[in-house]
Amino acid sequence: MTAPVSLFELRNVCLRRAPRDVLFDCSFTLSRFVHTAVLGRSGCGKSTILRVLAGLEAPTDGTVFVDGMLASAAGRIVIAPNERRIAMVFQDLGLWPGLDVMDNVRMGLEASGLPRQERRRRAMAALDLCGVGELAQRLPGTLSGGEQQRVALARALAAEPAVLFLDEPFAGLDLATKADLLRDVKNLVSARGLTVCLVTHDPTEAFALCTHAAIVEEGRVAQHGPWRELMSDPHSAILRAFRARYETTAASAD
């Protein structure tokens, strides 16, 4: 087995944004083929970390490396988001409401340079893979929450990225739909050998999908590593609470 190779790296990243600073001296590595959860309370800066990694926001201080190359530095984006081989599913999904499902996915392949027919074929394949092929002609506003999630996932996967960023995509879904989606996402990303970075405040989601986690507290990465290590020595309140619940559930099951 080969050791994980660093794919994305934040080095001493700070982000100051009025009226308060968002990130302080954040250092964090996203390894190739590893599924990592960025876990923390609401407003702690975890989504901002994802945006900085994606190149949607430039850090005020510090650097971001992608595949060992400088991608962002203080106040500037060196490698544009579409050149980082990433795809992202947003919390509000970011589906373009005026375009039907097929066009949403097809337009996501805009930069691929593929011929029109091939783009269409690939979009349809991604929609079928996510189980929403029959909704291709519908507008996003006419779909249920779960169906919209699947369309957003299809748009992300159709681009054949190396890394998939998931920014709390399961928030607001009922338990059954969330469980179905988590299972499907896990199967899809494993089958495609994708690196995953999931932002969430729910340790259960993080635990279900990811093997590693980074715990963010007040704009800092407080702990980072495989789940086993984190759970054996939880520093943060969120991990301690999760471990306590996990142990209680396990004890009840016994």
Partner: peptide
């Protein structure tokens, strides 16, 4: 207009004129 529309367009390399015409204008 949700910021995520623009972010999604940026990540997928959608050009500005196409984004304005296909996404923003209908909205």
């Amino acid at each position: 207009i949700a910021p995520s529309w623009t972010y999604a367009a940026a990540i997928h390399g959608v050009t500005l004129p196409r984004y304005l015409r296909m996404v923003l204008w209908p909205a």
